[in-house]
């Protein structure tokens, strides 16, 4: 598995992934919500960093699923297209994911664990792995940036979500109001804003 030796690592300091895994999950993120510098998507949002931190923390019980998932996804890609997933051309990556997204693979909807699989158990497992990665890429694109994803709030900008607002004014609640006019606030912004208000209140009280 020497596919990962040639270029800069995706994550400067991973907390769970090795460089190959980080690169693979980053490539998957780019397939789930594609983007570029002009119109950012999940890669630009740093979804892989969110997933890396989650796997060393809140989602540590999924470590094995990711480790095996990357390995088996690559096996499948080598058989189909002669290379690891992240090294494939984007059309080939797309073709692999279309194959995995086939409902027959049984990875859809609420679940109670890895599907047993019919004729091809590995195929079912990889399809399930992709469904989990897809979910985590969505989380890494739309979570608060404090979790390591949604860098520069690119996910919230994409959909016009202003983020962590203490509240909204009446004029914001009118039909047709363009929420993209509102300044985006993260939890950090909201805390700073409220601590300013609290400090202001104290000053007034002290006088």
């Amino acid at each position: 598995m020497n596919d990962a030796v040639s270029s800069e690592p995706v994550l400067a300091v991973p907390t769970f992934f090795n460089d190959h895994e980080a690169r693979t999950v980053d490539a998957l993120a780019g397939c789930v919500i594609p983007g570029d510098a002009e119109d950012p998507g999940a890669r630009e949002a740093g979804a892989v960093e969110y997933i890396d931190r989650s796997l060393s923390g809140a989602y540590h019980e999924l470590a094995g699923l990711y480790r095996r998932g990357v390995t088996e996804l690559d096996e499948l890609c080598r058989e189909r297209h002669g290379g690891a997933f992240f090294a494939l051309a984007s059309e080939q990556q797309h073709a692999v994911l279309v194959e995995l997204d086939d409902p027959v693979s049984g990875a859809h909807g609420a679940d109670g664990g890895v599907p047993a699989g019919g004729g091809d158990a590995r195929q079912a497992r990889v399809a399930y792995f992709f469904a989990v990665v897809r979910e985590h890429v969505v989380q890494g694109t739309f979570c608060d940036p404090v979790y390591g994803g949604n860098r520069d709030a690119v996910g919230w900008r994409l959909v016009g979500f202003p983020g962590a607002y203490w509240g909204y004014e009446e004029q914001h609640g009118q039909l047709g109001f363009d929420s993209r006019q509102l300044q985006i606030k993260t939890l950090e912004d909201l805390r700073r804003e409220r601590s300013g208000i609290a400090a202001g209140n104290r000053e007034r009280t002290n006088r």
């Binding site: 397939c31 789930v32 919500i33 594609p34 983007g35 998507g41 797309h94 994911l97 997204d101 897809r134 969505v138 989380q139 739309f142 979570c143 996910g155 919230w156 994409l158 959909v159 979500f161």
Partner: peptide, 24 residues
Amino acid sequence: QPMEALHNLPPHAPTWGAGLKEWA
């Protein structure tokens, strides 16, 4: 919120790719 909305896609919307991004 956004993630809740993305868990409730219309059945015809793509669940990943450029189509998902456009829907969102």
